[in-house]
Each structure stands twice: as structure tokens, then as C-alpha cells.
Design a protein around this nucleic acid. Structure first.
Ligand SMILES: [Mn+2]
Ligand SMILES: [Mn+2]
Ligand SMILES: [Mn+2]
Ligand SMILES: [Mn+2]
Lengths: 218, 218
DNA sequence: ACCTATTTTTAGTTTTGTCTAAATTTTAAT
DNA sequence: ATTAAAATTTAGACAAAACTAAAAATAGGT
């Protein structure tokens, strides 16, 4: 399995997660920042290896084997992210780039030991679930802050956009995962929110609210 | 800097360490388990980038820039080896293969944090010195066990051959770095040694003695 | 000095992963 | 049903890193 193949599988998984049915060539090309013709080439190679289903003009989807492989890469990516934050004091906006490299290290023992060292974490620094060794993947019960009605209370559990600029913005505004949150008011005009976070009142734009995941209190 | 370029620089450094003057094409090819013609191709590319001195038929040697780069790869390799042993309970015969991959991860911050986490170790699990961030490299005062006269005492500080089979053999015979050692007798016939290690007497073949480094007690 | 064995380089190919430009298929609108 | 636009695939090219086979240079022995 080459690094490039692994990156394609991961991209296809992420694009397919949620959406059923096959993924388009163009979507993969955009995600991978490459050209559609390159995607077609790779689709053939991955199909040859039994990792994707591919019929000309019909889009691409992962086989069971492809899904397993993608999950193992994602598992490694997210475990390394946790490692960087918990053990090496990286901030959550710094880890992704390095994890993109570390996820391709080939050593079953290495990642299992990292997993144990971290005490088998369930979520990465961005709130994304870490697949188990055998590919079990549990998505947390969560919803976008922007989709929640007034007066609901909950806890921040994840980000949809995990780009460095967004994460740094959250840091600057003291918005962190684990924070308690209550929606006080919604502004009809710009859909901005008045919220109570960890006891402090603040106003949040729709742009932000639609990229923050919250778990409702039961 | 590609992975392949980094591996060539490392190989050239190791071959040149000790020997002065340029390294031959064939020596590099053998070290890298590749063909001499491939080495010639790479020599041109590295010379182009100012990393090696190369004149046709005259051999190859590292420039200052090439040496710095090689040392930074070696630093990463050895720090990762220490990490694997100290933090993840790898054995010293397992770490090299994984470190060969980890040494190519590109993140200055990552390796500095690993260095700090390990409390700035000076030597790797095989007794090899870890270059400092600024490329300082101190070889320890040591000599091969096979070169030491009868009755000298010392401490095991390194291995010359760090292949897995040799290391496993040492484990099996309870020979570890840090162990005290005293040479009791040398057999003229096969140059085997009778030694006292950590209080226990044992016999060691020349083959073994010529791959174990010892620091003489002062 | 000459010849030969060895070393090294060159020339031409291969594989992987990418690209551009052109051709083809699908889709969506009239 | 036609046709235009968009998506996708094909064909041909390229760069990196390797290889084989052949040519060239060097080194050693007489
Ligand atoms: Mn990430
Ligand atoms: Mn993440
Ligand atoms: Mn090593
Ligand atoms: Mn080592």
C-alpha cells in the first residue's frame, strides 16, 4: 500500500461518510487537490486491488477491504493527533499537518503502543471518534450549534471545520471542547447567537455556530 | 528534500565517518542495497543541490550543508529509537526498522519535543551518540572488546553490529549495555574470551567480542 | 608501457504518480 | 429530441527513482 493509495482511500471514506452511494471523480479530485484525470488513474489501480468499486462514469465507492484500510489510516491519524496534544503539548491547530505524515508509518505495534500510552482515547483533539483496532467507528450523538433551538443546554464536543484559522479563532475567543454552552437568543437578521459559555455571555456568528458540534444535555 | 535523498546522505555520512576522503560509488551502492548506476544518478542530483562534492570517477563526499542534513536525519533516527524503547517498551532489536520511517517525518517542533520528553538523551539504545540540534556529534571514548588486553575492566557501552539477530543473541546471553565487564582470559586458538560480566563468568567468541564496544574504567 | 580486471558512467527502460489536452459520456435545459 | 454544458476518461507526456546492458575510465600487474 503506497502513501498515495492510502490518501485516496482516506479521502473517499471522508467524502462518502454520511452520503450513501458512489463518490464522484471531481469530488475526490477537489478533496485531494489533484486533477480528475489523476483520480481516474488511481480508481483503476485501487479497483484492480479490490479496494474500491469502480465502473466507468459511475463513480467510486470503497469495498469492505477499502473501508477497513481507510479506517486504519484514520485511526492512526487521530491517535497521533491525540499523542501530539497530550504528550507533546502541541495545540489542536498544529497537529493535523504532522499527523498527515505520521499516519503512514507502517508498524502495527507502534500504533497499538501509542494507543495504550494514551489510555485508549475515544476521540481526537477535534472531537472526532477514533476507530477501534477492528474498525468499529462510533459517531457521537451531536448536532451543529446552529441547528439547536433557543434555551437548549449542552457541551461543545467537536468542530466541523478543523482548519487552523478556525481553531485559532476559537482559542482566541476561549471556546474549547468540553465547555458548557446554553443558547440564550437567536438573531433573525443574521442568525447570530447569544450564548452562555462557561458562565460568560457572548455573541457568536452563524458562520461559527454552523461549525461547532454540541451534545445536548439529557 | 526527498526521502531517497535523505537516505543517500545518511549512507554517505556513515561510510565517511572515520575514513577521510571521498566515498566510492560501489560502497554507497552496497550500503544502500542498490546499483552503482543509481548511485551515480543520485550523486549528480545531490551535487546539483550543493549537498555533496562530486567529480566523475572521483568519488563522493558530503559538503558542509550535506553533513548538516545527514546529522539532522541521524539525530531524528536515534531520538525516535530512544522514544520507542523508553516510552513504548520496544526492544532494542525492534526499533531500527520503525526509526527508518520516523526519521523522515518533517517537523522541527516534533523532534524537539520528543527530545525534551526523553530528557535530552545523549545516546541511543545501541550506544550511538545523538547529534545535538546544531549538529554537534560526540563520539564516546570506547573500544572493541576484542581489542582490550587481559585483566582490563570496563562497561559495555555499544554495539558495532546492531542487526536484530546479534542484538537478540546478546539478550539471550544476558549481555546488555551498562553491564560491567572484566576480561579474564584470551584463548589464542580461536581468540575467544573468558569474561566476568556482572559477576558471572562466561565465554565469548571473537565474533561477538569484535562487535561489542566497551568503555575502560579509569 | 601495455594489457586486463574492476569501477564507474552512460544510454535506454520501467514504474509510480502526476499533468495537459483532446475525446467521450452523461446531464440538464430548451 | 436536440443540443449545450459539465463531468469523466483517454492519450500522450513528464519527473523521480530505480533497473540492465554497454561503454568508458581507472588501477594493478607484468
Ligand atoms: Mn487531522
Ligand atoms: Mn482530527
Ligand atoms: Mn538504527
Ligand atoms: Mn541506533
Amino acid at each position: 500500500m503506497t502513501r498515495s493509495e492510502e490518501n485516496y482511500l482516506k479521502a473517499i471514506f471522508h467524502l462518502g461518510n454520511g452520503e450513501p452511494g458512489p463518490i464522484t471523480t471531481n469530488a475526490i479530485a477537489e478533496q485531494m487537490e489533484t486533477k480528475p484525470s489523476s483520480v481516474t488513474d488511481m480508481a483503476k489501480k485501487l479497483a484492480e486491488k479490490g479496494l474500491v468499486h469502480y465502473k466507468k462514469y459511475q463513480g467510486i465507492s470503497l469495498t469492505d477491504s477499502g473501508t477497513r484500510t481507510a479506517l486504519s489510516i484514520i485511526r492512526k491519524h487521530r491517535l497521533w493527533e491525540v499523542f501530539l496534544v497530550k504528550k507533546l503539548d502541541f495545540t489542536w491547530d498544529e497537529v493535523h499537518e504532522v499527523a498527515e505524515q505520521l499516519e503512514h508509518i507502517k508498524s502495527e505495534k507502534l500504533i497499538d503502543k501509542i494507543d495504550a500510552l494514551l489510555d485508549f482515547p475515544k476521540y481526537d483533539p477535534h472531537g472526532d471518534p477514533i476507530p477501534t483496532k477492528d474498525g468499529k467507528f462510533m459517531e457521537r450523538d451531536k448536532q451543529l450549534l446552529s441547528d439547536m433551538p433557543i434555551n437548549t443546554q449542552g457541551v461543545c464536543v467537536g468542530v466541523k471545520d478543523s482548519s487552523a484559522p478556525f481553531l485559532k479563532f476559537l482559542d482566541k475567543n476561549k471556546i474549547a471542547l468540553g465547555n458548557t454552552i446554553k443558547i440564550l437568543d437567536k438573531e433573525d437578521f443574521d442568525q447570530s447567537l447569544q450564548i452562555l459559555m462557561e458562565g460568560k455571555e457572548l455573541r457568536i456568528s452563524h458562520q461559527i455556530a454552523s461549525n461547532l458540534y454540541v451534545k445536548k444535555n439529557d
